[in-house]
Design a protein around this nucleic acid. Structure first.
Lengths: 329, 329
DNA sequence: AGGCAGTGCCGAATCGTTCCGTCAACGGCG
DNA sequence: CGCCGTTGACGGAACGATTCGGCACTGCCT
């Protein structure tokens, strides 16, 4: 059922049929009408692929995660995706979750008008390929250093982290430590830099350790926290990056006979549902993933539709949820 | 950067270039090599749209929800989607969340090889359009009566519901009631039929009420439950369909001075995170959305790749999580 | 030498649209 | 009557790949 068939049925040429249905071109109302009726009658539906080939437009945007399958199990990415849908839906864009099976590197360019890269990671080859593809790209969260970049929408982790540090300092903490991802994640870099700057400003000795971005293995996190306390037994404030790490850290603090929320303050850079129900509950940064997703999609679509001109990086506020682990009652 | 350019650079024809890169055709190793190098050098990436137009294959499947934006906020659909990704990812298929902005009905056929319809609803025009499109379709959950259908993967709600009813009956319940969605959802129809059959088998008087599929307004559910108890004050077992409805029902039971889990047993046909923390916690059916998503994707991809031939409906087991509301200690 | 089987590469058609240039018909006007 | 502007519709060239039949050439066998 192609345009050709409709044209034949309406006894006009392909081009006339096309223009009739598109509402463009010059023709009598009667002609247009008869084409529309023929299309209706035959149940004609335009072939989106052919149309896209001709026009170069897809009305779809892509979403790329480092290994989507696993990532998608995390509440953060689900929320992020929901935020993206909040915008693509009313704008009538499809959202394509780009496959990222690392064993089958995709050669061809995705069938989308632009791509959102959620949390770009330095060694993600697919992300590099996308960035090098001339497709419009918007990133959710900062690029790690040395990665080719694009406009970025990120949460204001720095301000939020400082709020936590200030708060803990106000409660008497003077031996802070940070466990955060290494330099392959822009987020880790920012956390570390912010932490170190803050320590320098206060003249405090800051300890840092490096975790693996996206690591959900509690054992690894426990080991990391234990090693940190072994080396720096006087630590009285520990900031970790992920929910899993926070829960692991809680266990380690307890095992050492210390009292979380009292003589060791604990905080997490990424809020999660479990942090509210631990004992004590754990202070965390709400990164506003849904808002972030929304802003990414908004920026990308504005870019594609040529609305506004800005295309500058955007910072969305993040909020600290203070809980018992930093002394809140 | 098209195949043409590569061909020119390698001093061969378009067709030879195409075949060289695809690994097909007959040519000397040297020729093939030089094409590959030219492609490499020029940074050539095949245009997926052109390729799809020619071959008719997209290597992408679509996912349709009734109004994706909202739906996607629900844990059920997120889990379902994660399950779909579990399969599409390793198979290297993209997953397109089909836009379903109801105000801009899509004319064109989606750029996908097949579609999964999650929870088909009778009055969903887009679902009808998809089914009528000759694209391979797999549905997650039963079709409502009167809807054109396709292979279906569904959870075994009937067995699970019967398990709940039997269990409650064993605890002495003799006045059962069911509040479930009406005939526009296959799920609602199944629940109602199962309930009525069970009541008939036991010779018990069963009361039923109709809720709106996907309704997340607590007020509506409260009203429904209150009306039910007003009409049938002796009800000693209430089964509702959704998390929101269950929590609303709990309130209603309490307001009437009855004791949920003791003199009124309560159960829900769809488990959710909050049902575990209510007081008393509420017995519910775990519909295994992730498994369901996986099975849908598996079936669709098998269909597309021509593997196996079955394409028969599939039933995945659902499990009842017995909690305090049905008398579990 | 002539025939025949292989080999290596190319030309051209095709997928279904969109869009621009062209053209015949027609009516109005000087 | 001849010219011109307008109208309505059409033809054909893209868009960028895939695919297959065919053609020239080589080398071997008889």
């Amino acid at each position: 059922m192609t345009l050709q068939d409709v044209a034949k049925a309406a006894k006009v040429s392909r081009s006339t049929a096309s223009e009739a249905l598109a509402g463009t071109g010059r023709m009598t109302a009667a002609t247009r009408q008869s084409v529309v009726e023929a299309a209706q009658r035959l149940g004609y539906r335009p072939n989106a692929v052919a149309r896209s080939l001709r026009t170069g437009r897809m009305r779809a945007i892509g979403l790329h995660y480092l290994s989507s399958g696993d990532r998608f199990a995390s509440p953060y990415f689900r929320e992020f995706t929901t935020g993206v849908l909040d915008v693509t839906q009313p704008e009538d864009y499809d959202l394509t979750l780009l496959s990222s099976n690392p064993e089958v590197p995709r050669q061809a360019l995705p069938r989308v008008d632009g791509v959102i890269i959620a949390d770009p990671i330095a060694d993600d080859l697919r992300a590099h390929a996308l960035i090098g593809s001339a497709l419009p790209i918007v990133a959710g969260e900062l690029y790690p250093p040395g990665m080719p970049s694009s406009p970025v929408v990120s949460a204001d982790h720095a301000t939020a982290l400082r709020a936590i540090l200030d708060h803990a300092h106000g409660h008497g903490a003077t031996r802070p430590a940070l466990i955060a991802p290494g330099p392959n994640s822009g987020w880790g870099v920012l956390l570390r830099r912010t932490f170190e700057e803050w320590c320098a400003e206060r003249g405090l000795p800051g300890t840092t350790r490096e975790s693996r971005f996206g690591d959900t293995d509690p054992v690894a996190h426990t080991r990391l926290a234990a090693a940190l306390f072994a080396a720096e037994p006087d630590t009285d404030l520990l900031v970790v990056s992920s929910e899993v790490a926070a829960i692991a850290a809680l266990g380690v603090v307890r095992d050492r006979g210390r009292h979380p929320g009292v003589d060791v303050l604990l905080a997490c850079c990424a809020d999660g549902p479990r942090l509210d129900v631990t004992e004590p509950s754990i202070t965390a940064i709400d990164m506003r993933p849904r808002t972030l997703g929304r802003e990414c999609a908004r920026m990308l679509i504005d870019l594609l539709e040529g609305r506004g001109a800005p295309q500058e990086d955007k910072l969305v506020p993040a909020e600290v949820v203070f809980r018992a682990s930093t002394g809140a009652r």
